[in-house]
């Protein structure tokens, strides 16, 4: 049994090394304490609501969020706007619907069941408006980047003047956390860019943290349930394992062999 566990854990450690060494070869990301990490990690509601504000007022003019619906904003485990607030948010957007009985498309105020309105009609239009670079959809962006939240958080604060010797083309910016350091997106944040209704001081660092938290939620909307359920499931499994262990000992005590 002892041998078995020793060998097994060695193998697992070995298998895990290539995974961690991957991260090591990249630049060191900026660190901050995320409330959603850890066994009981939960989102900070305030950060989610502020993050939503940053997303709509800053990011949403170029970046779509096509897998989210306005109803998600009032769902449990998210920003938890009240249903009234979520309805008001939805209604503030014009949604194209139809065709009506005359066969024509029309616009109407958004409803809770509508998907987030897209900034561009299609990928080509988005590329055309952004110098050929498609601003990626943000629904699962955090999960689609190797560094996850730390990468997004760092990138938003990583704009710098290019070091000597690096020349940038027109419409290209220098970012020390971007893969290859060249990014088409201009620095989106500056101190005081948005006005938080809860009085939080909108520094670049604060907005980066808030919007990254929001993006973590959009990528993983059931994260809180997952953490809660996971703790219960593992606790349950441990209790059952202990019970089965003693049952096993008792059953095997009938024969003279060590289990």
């Amino acid at each position: 049994m002892k041998n078995f566990l020793r060998i097994l854990s060695l193998i697992i450690v070995f298998l895990a090394t290539p995974l961690s060494s991957h991260a090591a070869e990249k630049v060191e990301y900026l660190k901050t304490d995320w409330s959603f990490k850890g066994l009981f990690g939960k989102f900070d509601r305030g950060a989610l609501q502020r993050g939503y504000q940053v997303y709509t007022e800053v990011c949403a003019s170029c970046h779509s969020m096509k897998y989210l619906s306005y109803r998600n904003l009032s769902e449990k485990g998210g920003p938890e706007f009240t249903e009234q607030q979520a309805k008001a948010i939805a209604a503030s957007f014009d949604v194209t619907d139809g065709p009506n009985s005359d066969g024509e498309m029309f616009t109407r105020p958004g409803k809770l069941s509508d998907k987030f309105v897209m900034p561009y009609e299609n990928v080509k239009a988005a590329q055309a408006a952004n110098g050929g670079a498609y601003p990626p959809d943000m629904s699962v962006l955090v999960k689609a980047r190797g560094g996850g939240v730390d990468y997004i958080y760092s990138l938003l604060q990583g704009y710098e003047d290019p070091p000597a010797g690096i020349t940038l083309d027109e419409g290209v910016h220098y970012n020390k956390y971007m893969y290859g350091n060249k990014i088409k997106m201009s620095n989106p944040l500056s101190d005081g860019l948005v006005e938080y209704s809860d009085g939080t001081n909108a520094t670049v660092e604060q907005m980066s943290k808030d919007v990254t938290t929001f993006l973590m939620w959009t990528a993983e909307p059931h994260l809180e349930t997952r953490h809660q359920m996971g703790f219960k499931a593992i606790l349950y499994l441990i209790i059952l394992t202990i019970l089965v262990y003693f049952s096993m000992k008792r059953i095997w005590s009938r024969v003279e062999t060590e289990v």
Binding site: I12, L39, R226, H227, M229, G230, F231, A233, I234, L237, I238, L240, T241, V244, Y245, S247, M248, I251, W252, V259
Partner: peptide, 22 residues
Amino acid sequence: IKDTFALLMFMIVFAFFVFYTP
């Protein structure tokens, strides 16, 4: 019973991946 015991330990590792580092 022995297989069950081992399976449960395996499931704990499995559950950790599913719930915490999926």
